[in-house]
Write a protein that binds this DNA or RNA. Structure first.
Lengths: 201, 201
DNA sequence: TCCCAACTTCACATGGTGTGAACTTCATAA
DNA sequence: TTATGAAGTTCACACCATGTGAAGTTGGGA
């Protein structure tokens, strides 16, 4: 259950990375169910038993994978435009851009974690943190609008941030991008325009 | 894999219903993972083996549960206002109402099926059908608006229907209603206003 | 060169799905 | 009233996934 202490030497770090990479590929190419401990091990070129030397459980592996993905895909860079936005409108646009460009890259893995959430408290907590962070971004955008007196009157900071978060949830992105085959450009543009319509006075 | 042929006598039907009811309760009270074949059987008061006399697999059970739920919760009645709407605005409102009142009632089960979808083709097909039906309702609302020349110019019938479907996806409902603790009334009102803002010229 | 962390192999427990086979129960139709 | 078959039970498997224990092997760095 508990996480494994951070590895000492380079060899161990290398194997951990290989395992995470393997897990990611399996999830993205064959779905979350395909990423069994045995399959991940084989793909990474180690024994099944060795996986447990790096991750104490499958949930632990998934949680680590989530962090790994955020780093590899440069989550900080994706969020920066939102936090550095000069005004509320820029913040909304930044949010739309992020939803269309960054979230799809971590979606398959995020889904896998979200599933584990239902029966694993550790995964659930990890998920909570990630959601909270995304919520802060939404709140920031809405607060900017409110400060500028441009927030549409039906919204409070609270409800506005809630709704903005909902409007960039994975189901929304997934449905439009994957099921309905929108392009990222289409999605970003439509979300941008939609957010303005919904939240601007 | 294949579904079991429809039962002959009343006894069989009674047991099937009991199994479906048990599965629903387990999913809603303890999450999808708790609804194992053994747990469902025990709760329904039959042996684990007997479940397979009614449903050929867990996926088959879930699919049947979905249909059962739609009937019990009167899906047709929930959709009727949308199809009988006099104009586009009424259709949007009906959609918002349905999203806030009907979808939450089937959500836990719908989630369970959506998960099975990833590794079971049968469940996937069942899910496709349900989604397609919900999509038709969205398309209908957007078409009404277009016919009345009230559809905002950035939308085509296609993209408008896509977006309306996305804006009433389970993640949206779930986040606002369950995670952010909105009331159904709040949700219906906000969705209603939001749909108007987004889709009306 | 020696040592220890990383890794391997093999064995096992647990718990879920799904199936086969033989037996019992029970409603009902002749 | 009885026999017949559908519904259900019990017990036994096979299979696969997670997770652990224990003993042995390897390889890189001080």
């Amino acid at each position: 259950m508990a996480a494994i202490e951070t590895p000492q030497n380079a060899r161990s770090r290398h194997t951990s990375q290989a395992l995470l990479k393997a897990a990611r590929e399996l999830i993205e190419q064959q779905g979350p169910a395909a990423a069994t401990m045995a399959a991940v091990a084989e793909r990474a070129g180690v024994s099944r038993r060795a996986v447990y030397l790096h991750f104490s459980s499958r949930s632990d592996l998934l949680a680590a994978l989530f962090d790994y993905l955020n780093e590899v895909e440069d989550r900080d860079a994706a969020f920066r435009p939102l936090w550095e936005a000069a005004d509320g409108i820029a913040a909304l646009d930044a949010r739309a851009q992020m939803a269309a460009d960054f979230l799809p890259r971590i979606m398959p893995t995020a889904r896998a974690i979200q599933q584990a959430t239902h029966h694993d408290p550790d995964a659930a907590q990890h998920w909570e943190l990630a959601t909270a962070s995304r919520y802060d971004g939404c709140r920031r955008a809405i607060e900017l609008l409110a400060d500028e007196n441009r927030l549409a009157p039906q919204w409070t900071i609270q409800t506005g941030a809630d709704m903005l978060l909902a409007l960039s949830s994975f189901d929304v992105i997934d449905l439009l991008l994957n099921e309905r085959q929108w392009t990222r450009r289409q999605l970003a543009d439509h979300l941008s325009a939609l957010y303005r319509r919904v939240f601007l006075a």
